[in-house]
Amino acid sequence: MLFIITGVALFVLGLLGVIVHKEFLRKLISLNVFTSGIFLIFVSTTTREDIADPIVIALVLTGLVVTLGASAFAMMLIRAYAKESIKESDNV
């Protein structure tokens, strides 16, 4: 129960961070907090008698890996954007 509330809090905090921050890197970190919150909700709402549901663990593992792929791509996109915008401001 405590875990669920923490999960929701992390979800909301991450969502706030994604909306409020202007820098894309900070958005990305907040996005990771956001997904962590969802995974925490997922596992804690399905845990019965201190045993986590193996199906849920497998699904969350899938989700973790997918999130990793997305954030790796996002970071490279941020770098490319920073590099190109520097290039353009040099030309002007």
Partner: peptide, 28 residues
Amino acid sequence: LGAFDLALAEIALGAGITGALLLDTITF
């Protein structure tokens, strides 16, 4: 919560690889 697979993956993927990538990105 009894999810040891997730603990392993979280340390290795979430904190480890994402953290290293984030540090590298901020350096860049």
